[in-house]
């Protein structure tokens, strides 16, 4: 019990004094996950739109598959991307294993189903009367699609925020693809796993507190968005 209290106090101290190692890890975590979220948004929002605005056979099945992949285990993605990026893998020549870029790719794959799926739901929630109104007011088909996306903007933003939340909190890819290399690929989750194993509870706790605070901020943001 005593260990937890002293660990907690030490952790607060590390945060308040802006400990260079804690700050460095926090900065890198944010950079990697924000990049992954941003890139995934650029790909997934249009993809979600493509699925939503087109009728094709197997659409329902595709959406079911996408929804199943929401709970994709991070270690499975880690293994998959590891096999892709390892020296012998098809993308081995790029030497991306154990690099931040590799981690970005892994996180993108992890959160893509979530973002595509939530984009589709967001667009489906916009009733047909919005499209009719847009078309009736003289919008071309493309302009009408833009209008629907704009109507769904808050729900789509929620998908982005959720994706970011999942990216920053996952540990499988961080360890398997990142490799937890100090000063290079070490992020919140991989550092916590390692430091806890090594008995450096204070550092783990400090990182944990920051991570939970981030989750809180993400949640508050989400609530605000959904109240619009």
């Amino acid at each position: 019990m005593n260990e937890i209290t002293t660990g907690f106090l030490k952790a607060i101290e590390l945060i308040v004094t802006l400990d260079p190692e804690v700050m460095e890890i926090a900065g890198r975590s944010l950079a990697i996950s924000l990049t992954a979220t941003l890139l995934a948004s650029v790909v997934c929002i249009p993809l979600g739109g493509l699925v939503h605005f087109h009728d094709f056979t197997g659409k329902r099945i595709l959406i079911n598959i996408i929804q199943t992949l929401y709970s994709l285990p991070t270690v499975s993605v880690g293994l998959f991307v590891f096999l892709l990026l390892s020296r012998a893998g098809p993308l081995g020549v790029f030497g991306l294993l154990f690099t931040p870029t590799g981690m970005v790719i892994g996180q993108m794959i992890l959160i893509s189903p979530l973002m595509i799926g939530f984009t589709i739901s967001a667009l489906s929630a916009i009733g047909p009367q919005i499209k009719d109104t847009a078309i009736s007011l003289g919008a071309s088909n493309f302009q009408a699609i833009l209008t629907i996306i704009k109507e769904a903007r808050f729900a789509i933003l929620a998908a982005v925020v959720l994706g970011f939340g999942r990216a920053i909190s996952e540990v499988g890819i961080a360890i398997m693809i990142g490799g937890n290399i100090r000063g290079f690929t070490r992020v919140f989750t991989s550092a916590m796993a390692l430091e806890t194993a090594r008995g450096d509870i204070e550092l783990s706790m400090a990182l944990g507190i920051i991570l939970i605070s981030l989750a809180l901020v993400v949640n508050l943001l989400l609530n605000r968005i959904q109240q619009r």
Partner: peptide
Amino acid sequence: RRRMAMVSQKPVVFNANVYSNVAYGLRV
């Protein structure tokens, strides 16, 4: 269609301010 305009029974407005709503047809 651009020579016409229709108002539906149940008022439908875009999730935006009144100005943007009214400006819509002109913008497109």
